[in-house]
Computed example of a mutant assay.
Amino acid sequence: MIVRLVKMEFKPEEIAYFLNLFDEVKEQIRAFEGCEFLELLQGEKETGIFFTHSYWKDAKALETYRNSLLFKTTWAKTKLLFNAKPEAWSVEKFVNLR
């Protein structure tokens, strides 16, 4: 399983637009083949910082999503809203604490 974390910092005036955009596409992303989990996290004090946290069946599933029209159109809209360069990490789940 691949865990994907993407840190995004938005211009304050663009946060509401981003939240609407995320709300429009979240179920499509969750339904994408290979996506097992998706959530959006917001900084507690730095409210312009958000993280997407997702689980993918494997690296191939994540790469298929990243090459999809859904990702490309959503990312094209999202990247216009940034206040800083986004950061992303793909990691393998090593230990399940449950």
Score class of each variant (00 low, 15 high):
K26H: 09
F10T: 01
L38F: 06
S54G: 05
L19S: 00
H53W: 13
L38Q: 04
K79W: 08
R98E: 09
E27M: 07
Y65T: 04
L40W: 07
E33D: 10
E46T: 12
V6A: 04
P12W: 10
E44G: 05
L38P: 06
Y65A: 01
K79M: 15
T47Q: 15
K26L: 12
L70E: 01
K60G: 01
D23L: 07
N83K: 14
T73R: 01
R4G: 05
K93L: 15
K79D: 15
E14F: 10
A84N: 09
N67D: 14
K26P: 04
A76K: 12
M1K: 05
V91R: 06
A59P: 11
R30N: 04
F50T: 02
N67A: 13
E39I: 11
M8L: 10
L40M: 11
K93Y: 09
K26T: 04
L97V: 06
Y55L: 08
F71M: 04
I15L: 15
I2L: 03
E92Y: 12
L62W: 00
E39R: 12
A88H: 02
N83V: 12
V91Y: 06
W75F: 15
T74Q: 07
F94I: 14
F94V: 15
W75T: 13
N67M: 11
R66W: 03
K26A: 06
K79N: 15
E63F: 02
I49E: 01
S90N: 07
E33Q: 09
A16L: 09
Y65N: 01
F22W: 00
I49A: 02
D58N: 07
E92T: 14
I49R: 01
K11E: 06
F37H: 13
A31R: 00
L69C: 05
Y55G: 00
N67S: 12
V6N: 03
A61Y: 05
L81H: 04
K77G: 13
E39K: 13
H53M: 14
F32A: 00
Y55F: 13
F71Q: 10
E9R: 02
F94A: 14
V3P: 01
V6L: 08
R66C: 02
V91T: 09
K7D: 10
I49N: 03
F51C: 03
N83T: 11
L19C: 03
E63T: 07
E14I: 11
W56C: 07
K77Y: 11
R30I: 13
K77R: 15
V25Q: 00
T64I: 02
A61G: 06
E13R: 09
G34N: 05
